[in-house]
């Protein structure tokens, strides 16, 4: 059973976002990293790029699959996790911690209300098992 961390918000496309004031930290959920298996590559955007909610900001690849990463909410990229370029496996080992992808300046906090909370996401994962 994969781990769902309390206090985060989740998308149906398996991203999580941790809100720290006006900043959002975004990553891939434990459920998704397990499904992908060994992650070999993470593609990240440039700092300063702006994306709308739902838009693809990067991608993640294993040897058997690839998937796009989507913005849980709209925002501008303020920081990217450079360490993932050399150690993409961090997404497997620590998806909610060192395996984060990007930090954004959230442009429309009301969009957060559309996201799943931990319990709802856990239920959503269970449905897909």
């Amino acid at each position: 059973m994969s781990k769902v961390e309390q206090g985060l918000k989740y998308t149906q496309s398996d991203e999580w976002i941790r809100v720290e004031g006006s900043v959002g930290v975004i990553g891939l959920t434990d459920y998704a990293q397990e499904a992908l298996n060994d992650i070999v590559y993470v593609e990240l955007p440039d700092v300063g790029a702006t994306f709308a909610k739902g838009e693809s900001f990067g991608s993640v690849e294993s040897v058997k699959a690839a998937s796009d990463m989507h913005m849980p909410v709209s925002g501008t990229v303020t920081e990217i996790n450079e360490a993932l370029q050399d150690a993409p496996e961090t997404v497997n080992s620590d998806p909610y911690g060192a395996g984060w992808f990007i930090k954004i300046a959230i442009s429309n906090p009301t969009e957060l209300n559309d996201l799943l909370d931990a319990d709802a996401y856990e239920k959503y994962c269970a449905e897909r098992e």
């Binding site: 060994d38 070999v40 590559y41 690849e61 040897v63 993409p88």
Partner: peptide
């Protein structure tokens, strides 16, 4: 069997 993860990394 070959290591596909190594190849991709």
């Amino acid at each position: 069997r070959v290591d596909e993860v190594l190849a991709a990394k």
